[in-house]
């Protein structure tokens, strides 16, 4: 599959403390790619660097074979951050319609996305009354508004109950089957094992492993991803 985003020797430090120590991997078109790592491994920093929200000190980020431009992010990358919360005094549908106007998409697109995420019934409620699961769905709608080629999500199922986690994972799977490339970070290894075509483990600022999950399990002779992951990061 052709490469969509590729990172080559990406380095980033905060006040001379290195957080990313030379990250290299590529995201291919049609992938559903999971990024795993312990707390503080640098997952959010890596995502922010890819999206241009943080500058990087060294290395290259390429989009479709050429240097990534801000315009590529504005048009082709949908993003859902961790602990996202949209303006609380607006209604869900209203928020999406305002955003759609700015992104030059018709208001019908908002209805399509609300239906896709199962939010049609809650669109006229104030966001402050939404549950965590509804906020995440609204976040995914926001990320999809510009019809991006790639969807980047930072801990999309964080703080959700098991049913909510399953809904989000099923939704990501559905979007991937509709042709979207999905890249997400997660602590919930069962989610990654269930849906990801490929994954990478970020450990102390370095990619310690990347590939197909079954290969990692075989490498460590583990029965599930959790066991394989812990062995890979040296916790067991």
């Amino acid at each position: 599959m052709p490469e969509l985003i590729s990172l080559n020797n990406l380095k980033k430090s905060f006040a001379s403390v290195p957080v990313l120590k030379g990250i290299s991997f590529s995201l291919c078109r049609g992938d559903i790619f999971g990024l795993l790592g312990l707390n503080g491994a640098g997952k959010t920093t890596l995502i922010k660097c890819v999206l241009g929200l943080l500058g990087h000190d060294q290395g290259r980020i390429r989009f479709k074979g050429r240097a990534l431009q801000a315009e590529d992010i504005y048009r082709q990358c949908g993003f859902l951050p961790e602990n996202f919360f949209p303006p609380r005094n607006l209604k869900g549908r209203e928020f999406l319609k305002i955003m759609a106007v700015g992104l030059c998409f018709s208001r019908n697109r908002v209805e399509e996305l609300l239906a896709l995420t199962g939010m049609s019934g809650a669109g006229d409620k104030y966001i402050r009354n939404y549950s965590r699961g509804m906020i995440q769905r609204l976040g995914i709608c926001t990320a999809l508004l510009k019809n991006p080629e790639v969807l980047i999500l930072d801990e999309p199922a964080l703080g959700l109950d098991p049913a909510g986690q399953k809904d989000i994972i099923d939704l990501l799977s559905l979007l991937n089957s509709q042709g979207k490339t999905v890249f997400f970070s997660s602590h919930i290894l069962s989610q990654i094992e269930k849906v990801c075509s490929r994954a990478a483990i970020l450990d102390q600022g370095l990619i310690s492993w990347q590939g197909q999950i079954k290969d990692l399990k075989e490498k460590h002779g583990a029965r599930d991803l959790e066991q394989a992951f812990l062995k890979q990061v040296g916790q067991r």
């Binding site: 504005y74 993003f79 951050p81 602990n83 996202f84 919360f85 955003m99």
Partner: peptide, 13 residues
């Protein structure tokens, strides 16, 4: 704090 700014800045300048 709610990180909505990051969503804005990945869609608009």
């Amino acid at each position: 704090d709610t990180r909505i700014r990051e969503v804005y800045l990945t869609s608009f300048s």
